[in-house]
Design a protein around this nucleic acid. Structure first.
Lengths: 133, 133, 133, 133
DNA sequence: GTGGTCTAGACCACG
DNA sequence: GTGGTCTAGACCACA
């Protein structure tokens, strides 16, 4: 579930951040669900606990997790207010990436296909799904 | 034209890569156009020539530039064949980014707006083309 | 009345300390008024009694509460003598915080507004006093 | 200049953060001025480089510093736009602290005295000062 | 030489 | 048992 590539150029803690963020976005990890403890996960992945902690801390700063002393780390519920700033950041990144993709031949249809794909993955993780949103 | 933010967290050579890539994508830099020499640009930006070189090498590897010994570096024309691999990479990045954006509240309309924006910038850079694509 | 945020980074006992201090300052809790027993409050808030005890002990040390064996904990009346030391501590904290706020753009008017706001809340909590101080 | 109390309950990196923030606010450290390198400062204070790095990183996240790979860490210039959010946070903290201080006997005059004191320290650090602002 | 990352351990605060 | 802090080292990427 949290497998990572030790040989990758990308820093281990960054891989973890990306992977966990993905699990949250696709609702595999539900709001307020507890994540593995720093030490447990460290043992399981055979990496240093500090590395896990750094990833958790980063996710906390980005608003995806919250952690409680002596209890553990948990998935943060989405809060619309706080996200507007983040959405604008992501939009700016998207504009750049879409530009590059279009330059390389991406069509509007391709883009919409990707959108549907993203949607589908998110609904797939939601067990209480009522079919279409 | 190549101004960069010395205070940014992003490495200077990366900023250069992104900036030049952007200029190529928006067709400000046309195919086969010559880029400034490493030394000239280094002097102009008052940074280390090695940094410029690293950026040019990176762009060459990504297929955006080609260089000729003793002549300089030039913008590579888009080649459809070679791009399919890159398009798939970018598509994969896009899927991740779109997923995150949707999680944060992006709508399909937002996405199409971004698409049109990207298109427009590319056409705007093309001075010899007033027609719609 | 004592609701606390389980997701907060701040330790639970600290949240309790702050909340009770606030209630005392705003005169919602009057001098010599009895606070809920450790066990009752623990049951009501569904947290560990030790946590309540730690908060009460902390407030006692800070001079906001006094406790009587077998009777419970009570709000301490303000004593001018004992407060001079604390006032100086708080003044020192205030100086730091005001400096930071001014650095971030706080004006003298903003500060006076905050002062009036603080005053108002304290008078608002005093149900038997409609006059100005 | 960066002396810290190793016996204090407060974490070393937090002491560093507070101290450096203070130096920036009082303009002892000027915008774009370089801070001691992580290793130099670690050697000077005889503490672990990681602890310094944690402090620098925290200050960077709070917007007081920016750091550049291979160059060092520098004081960030104040940007009014980005600070409004922070100002509101600090205002909220101020309201609480002023309430407590008033409860302990702080007068409006005391508060204004503290304000002037804060102002004075900030101007004192400004070498190009034109007397009053 | 600089910051950034990682490891392998230790101790503390919290509940 | 949990996260948070700190130490004492090591290696890498950047300029």
């Amino acid at each position: 579930m949290f497998e990572l590539d030790i040989r990758s150029r990308k820093a281990i803690y960054e891989q973890l951040v990306d992977r966990i963020k993905e699990l949250i976005i696709n609702q595999v990890l539900q709001p307020d669900e507890k994540l593995p403890s720093v030490r447990m996960l460290a043992k399981q992945l055979t990496i240093n606990p500090n590395t896990i902690q750094k990833a958790y801390r980063e996710l906390e700063q980005q608003g995806y997790l919250y952690s409680i002393q002596g209890k553990g780390s948990f998935v943060a519920p989405v809060e619309v207010m706080h996200n507007e700033m983040k959405l604008n950041e992501v939009k700016s990144q998207l504009l750049k990436l879409i530009s590059e993709a279009v330059y390389l031949g991406l069509t509007k249809e391709d883009l919409l296909t990707l959108y549907e794909e993203a949607k589908q993955k998110m609904e797939g993780g939601d067990e209480n799904d009522d079919r279409d949103s």
